[in-house]
């Protein structure tokens, strides 16, 4: 196992290197520069700005410069907002996005699993249709429409919750709900479909024949094996939700880090692009690694590393 971990660690480092290198290439291939929109700058000023940010260096030097910033995890100041360093942006935005995302994920996983299991147990019954209609509704409504409707109904009409900003726990209710519904629906549907399959397996019949309690059969024998597809989607889902949702954060005016992913690319703010990409890919790669570990834990028949 230790050998597998070490091998995996190097593979993860290599993946991050490839991602950042490709991002660097993409970034440089796409036309445009951070100073495109700057008004009133003549060519000399533009040249000076480019020199200041090392944008006129040969690409290979710029690349080495970026590699250094990745290893030290210090991306320097943003080009668009020179008073702000990329690290400051991440340090400010990530805790907010993390808090929102984590709450949403926990709610989505618990409610999604419960809905999915109930639907599978009462397959083609009333509860199944009710749970799956709820799930389908969750997938059917685009999150920007759902968020707007939630604000309209609960903030404007009923005045139950504040419509925007991020200052107290009560502000979390609407954005968390808007963020959790989609993943909940996905988890519920995947859980149902794999539970339905697992419940027909022989070992479930064996467990029933042994006289185990229904709860024990469902949780220990069925759900454990049915979790596989759910775990598969959770890896990427968690990574993307923890690093902030651009749409939700924009609609609810939440100071998370979701906006940096979009803004930095639109403005060609190179250090911010690199910073957010590295940050996101580190979280993503760790999540995917955890998913692979979870495969092995859930189903001992899966072997990640060949013996001998």
């Amino acid at each position: 196992m230790a050998r597998y971990m070490i091998k995996r660690f190097w593979a993860m480092a290599a993946t991050i290197l490839v991602i950042t290198t490709l991002t660097f290439v993409l970034m440089k291939v796409i036309p445009g520069s951070p100073f495109n929109e700057e008004r009133g700058t003549n060519e000399a000023v533009q040249k000076n700005l480019e020199a200041y940010y090392h944008l006129d260096d040969p690409l290979i030097f710029q690349y080495i410069f970026y590699l250094k910033s990745i290893i030290t995890f210090d991306f320097g100041p943003s080009i668009k907002k020179p008073s702000d360093s990329v690290n400051d942006m991440l340090e400010r935005g990530f805790p907010v996005s993390f808090e929102l995302g984590m709450t949403a994920i926990v709610i989505a996983v618990i409610s999604g699993l419960v809905l999915g299991v109930i639907a599978a147990l009462r397959r083609n019954g009333f509860l199944d249709y009710a749970a799956m209609s709820l799930a389908v509704l969750g997938i059917s409504i685009p999150n920007f429409i759902l968020a707007t409707l939630l604000i309209q109904q609960f903030a404007v009409n009923l005045k139950l919750f504040p419509a925007a900003t991020w200052t107290s726990p009560i502000h979390m209710v609407l954005p968390t709900a808007a963020l959790a519904v989609g993943p909940m629906a996905i988890i519920a549907r995947l859980t149902r479909s794999s539970m339905v399959e697992v419940l027909t397996q022989d070992y479930i019949r064996t467990a029933k024949a042994k006289g185990l309690s229904p709860f024990k059969i469902i949780v220990k024998h069925a759900l454990r094996n049915a979790l596989m597809p759910v775990i598969t989607v959770l890896g990427t889902l968690v990574a993307s939700i923890l690093t902030g949702s651009f749409v939700i954060e924009k609609i609810f005016a939440i100071p998370g880090m979701g906006k940096y992913f979009v803004e930095s690319i639109n403005q060609r703010d190179y250090p911010v692009i690199m910073g957010t990409t590295v940050f996101y890919s580190v979280i993503l790669i760790i999540m995917l690694f955890l998913v692979d570990l979870a495969y092995g834990l859930l189903d001992p028949r899966i072997k990640l590393h060949k013996k001998g």
Partner: peptide, 19 residues
Amino acid sequence: MMRIIEVLYGLPYLLVVIL
């Protein structure tokens, strides 16, 4: 093959779209 997938996941999507 899985590492290739991870790379695709990790790339900033908008950059790819703009390109």
